[in-house]
């Protein structure tokens, strides 16, 4: 087989792309990951919990190192680390007792402790963790069918739960005070969402790496929320953007020598910049033209 070459014939290109089974697995896993993170990231960005999401992504390091040290089966380490971090990051006491600054200190501390624990596990097992690069930047090309099945199961479960709590969660995210006064269990929703986010990030990081999952979690929802303020459309747009990002970058990485992580982050960032420029331009035009 020769190296794949890009031509102007799109059908031929796509056929080339699908020629290998590993590419099929990668596309499948990428699609599921994009849908999952497009939806959860949308809520995360809406709730301004980017820092928490970042910390959850970082938990893949202690997860992997701890799993290797204690000999946990499969990907249990990832889920354990993520869930523990999610629980540790949720606010204690009444929402007014902890200031936003202290809350961000708590999140930063959870990240530091998680990474420190990972470092300890790594040095206790006195080994070099196989492929630090894979851990950070993902190994999209070595995905097994079992991993895809696990990812699908987790995605269905997480999205199912989210579908049930979606409406109150949206309400609680937009106006927590009003929601609380109307009897919505704001705090339970907060913890529940953090757990869902933790599960989703843990499932996705194993495939995409700690860096990529964050690129899928942040930029597509940010783009979508920039473009429209209607929740439904914005959610659909967020998933759409995530799919575009992952498909384009998988294709680009396949045909070029540069790493996938670079394409994912750059395409996502480009989408966001275009959305930012477009909306600010149209807003300025509206302001200039008399109503």
């Amino acid at each position: 087989m020769t190296n794949p070459t890009l031509s102007w014939n799109v059908v031929w290109d796509v056929r080339q792309l699908l020629a290998y089974p590993f590419m099929m697995q990668a596309l499948l896993a990428g699609t599921i990951a994009a849908v999952l993170s497009g939806v959860l990231g949308w809520f995360m960005v809406l709730r301004r919990q980017t820092f928490a999401g970042h910390t959850l992504a970082a938990m893949s390091f202690p997860g992997a190192a701890g799993g290797a040290l204690f000999g946990l089966p499969g990907a249990l380490g990832y889920y354990l680390a993520s869930v523990l971090a999610a629980l540790a990051m949720t606010r204690r006491g009444s929402p007014r007792a902890e200031t936003p600054g202290l809350q961000s200190a708590r999140i930063g501390l959870v990240q530091a402790v998680g990474l420190a624990a990972g470092f300890l596990f790594l040095s206790l097992s006195s080994g070099v963790l196989g492929g630090l690069d894979d851990l950070l930047f993902g190994s999209f090309l070595g995905i097994t069918p079992t991993q895809v099945i696990t990812l699908t199961v987790v995605a269905v479960a997480v999205l199912g739960v989210l579908a049930c709590i979606g409406r109150p969660l949206l309400f609680a995210s937009l106006d927590p005070e009003l929601a609380r006064s109307l009897g919505v269990p704001v705090r339970t929703l907060e913890v529940g969402f953090m757990l869902l986010l933790g599960l989703a990030v843990a499932a996705t990081t194993q495939i995409t790496g700690a860096l990529l999952v964050f690129a899928l979690l942040v930029t597509p929802p940010a783009t979508a929320q920039r473009l429209t303020s209607r929740p439904g459309w914005s959610l659909v747009l967020s998933v759409g953007c995530a799919l575009v990002v992952i498909w384009l970058s998988l294709g680009a990485a396949y045909f070029s020598i540069y790493p996938l992580g670079f394409f994912t982050t750059s395409i996502g960032f480009a989408l966001y910049v275009v959305a930012l420029a477009g909306t600010s331009l149209s807003r300025r035009r509206e302001r200039i033209q008399p109503a």
């Binding site: 301004r48 820092f51 982050t265």
Partner: peptide, 14 residues
């Protein structure tokens, strides 16, 4: 928060 998040992803991509 969001601006920082987006900056992190892109810079790490670089």
């Amino acid at each position: 928060d969001l601006a920082i998040g987006i900056a992190i992803t892109w810079v790490l991509g670089l």
